[in-house]
């Protein structure tokens, strides 16, 4: 495998960014600073990190309602993300999307998505575009275990497979579709098995191991760039929090939760980097401190940013005219 030490250091920084962004969002939500619905990626950081480390700036991703980690890993700016979570006019979506709808076309981020499974079909379109225009681009499509029971999953994997599109289907199996555990919502254990139905490779990896995810994605992306079509990667992980903030998650088994948290991805990656002489504990602590400062800056930016103007509500519905707004 061709991963460099520099890439591994970058992966560490990405994971820490996600962890600290999400921890901060958790607190800000609890303190009433972030309105709306908030779905946190805590515990799943290794997946977005391992996949996106393989992507170029002009590659595409589709994301989910639990999308902050994907956006950060693809290079999203935490200042604009935080401002969007705060509903400010400087946010990625000018305060029109919020947590579930962050997008950045310049970074190939085709949007977080509040509809479970909807990103799968959109990823097919992005893959079609890459193949049709004969670029070497690919699209990584993130989705959860729950969405593999949606019709979109079947339609998208089928279409991508017959057209051999450069799409990497990344299933983040965090073992819950909202409150329903995987063992209750589907009769299979390994979602990767479903790849067989489409005649494409399916691999299951430890989603809390950043290097395992990196390797699986590396291989799948290489195949995709060579025109060999899509791959389904199942990353087994665990959602630390409830489905959304405010969900007490009474449906979880505390023992299982404890076991998964013990296998937590950031700590494991730290140990890996130290054991392999990639980074020292001091170097990693320094990264942690730098990210703390980035988060503080992002929060300050969000807090100091102006709210949108009510008259802007009618803008951006269409590209070429504004909708009428209410005059009060």
């Amino acid at each position: 495998m061709d991963v460099t030490k520099e890439q591994m250091r970058h992966m560490y920084r990405t994971m820490v960014r996600i962890r600290k962004f999400e921890s901060n969002a958790q607190n800000d939500f609890a303190n009433g600073k972030i309105p709306g619905f908030l779905h946190l990626y805590l515990g799943e950081e290794a997946i977005a990190t391992g996949v996106c480390e393989n992507l170029n700036k002009d590659d595409f991703i589709t994301s989910t309602h639990r999308g902050h980690g994907h956006i950060i890993a693809k290079g999203g700016d935490m200042k604009y993300m935080m401002a969007e979570l705060y509903g400010k006019s400087t946010g990625y979506c000018k305060g029109k999307g919020g947590s579930m709808h962050i997008a950045d076309r310049d970074l190939g981020i085709l949007g977080a998505n509040g509809i479970v499974g909807a990103g799968q079909d959109i990823a097919v379109g992005a893959g079609l575009s890459c193949k049709y225009r004969k670029t070497q681009q690919v699209c990584a499509c993130f989705f959860g275990d729950g969405s593999t029971n949606q019709g979109t999953f079947h339609e998208a994997l089928n279409m991508a497979s017959i057209w051999k599109l450069p799409v990497i289907f990344v299933c983040e199996n965090n073992h819950f579709g909202i409150s329903m555990s995987q063992s209750r919502h589907q009769a299979i254990k390994d979602i990767a098995d479903r790849a067989a139905a489409y005649g494409i490779p399916g691999v299951a990896v430890d989603g809390n191991d950043a290097m395992a995810v990196y390797e699986a994605a590396n291989e799948a992306i290489a195949r995709a760039r060579k025109g060999q079509g899509p791959t389904l990667i199942e990353c087994k992980t665990w959602r630390w929090r409830g489905h959304f903030e405010g969900d007490p998650a009474i449906y979880k088994d505390p023992k299982e939760q404890e076991e998964w948290v013990a296998r937590e991805p950031v700590k494991r990656f730290r140990e890996f980097l130290e054991e392999n002489g990639v980074m020292t504990a001091d170097e990693m602590d320094k990264v942690d401190a730098e990210v703390d400062q980035e988060i503080k800056d992002a929060v300050q930016f969000a807090e100091e940013s102006p709210l949108p103007k009510p008259e802007d509500v009618g803008k951006d519905v269409y590209t070429d005219f504004d909708e009428e707004v209410r005059v009060r």
Binding site: G97, R105, D316, Y318, T319
Partner: peptide, 9 residues
């Protein structure tokens, strides 16, 4: 999409 993403796409 165009609206949700603040005109980005």
């Amino acid at each position: 999409m165009h609206y949700m993403f603040g005109g980005k796409i």
